[in-house]
Design a protein around this nucleic acid. Sequence first.
DNA 1: CACCATTTGTACGTATGTATC
DNA 2: TGATACATACGTACAAATGGT
Lengths: 81, 81
Amino acid sequence: MIDHDGPTPLYVQVADAIEARIQAGDLLPNRPIPSENQLVQEYGIVRGTARKSIQLLRERRLVVTVVGRGTYVATPTDDQA
Amino acid sequence: MIDHDGPTPLYVQVADAIEARIQAGDLLPNRPIPSENQLVQEYGIVRGTARKSIQLLRERRLVVTVVGRGTYVATPTDDQA
DNA sequence: CACCATTTGTACGTATGTATC
DNA sequence: TGATACATACGTACAAATGGT
């Protein structure tokens, strides 16, 4: 699923994969996405890379992060940034 | 100048310091800010921290980065993002 | 053209702090 | 108290882009 040798950065590939899961309805609004450590397990990446993926999703305004809780699929309400 | 023990994250302190230098006219529009390695030297931080500072300045739209060249103080023209 | 220095980009690994439950 | 999860900061290595020699 993730190409560790291709030209596309891993953190972009992972962010795209999560975005696809959101669009597909696999991950629902107000529900948590996999934790950083879970992403590490699922995609065979290191935690720093998982964090960069989540940050990219935040910049795309697809997720919101709550310290100590986790990262959640954004809702239309979250767009008031 | 930088408090390595205080509650404010180093990368925020460094970004604020650079922003102050921009506001003071020490760093001019279309002119480069110190490179990541120079920031490492000047502030006694690690490169990852310097990068986070620059990223924060990009989010503030105070600078623009060109791969292989460096990071430059933004001009009003750059605001067309 | 090859080569090199500089600079930013990506990715790995590790440790400690803070917040929530 | 402890487990979980994100935040910060350190350190290292190599890749890619740029510009000059």
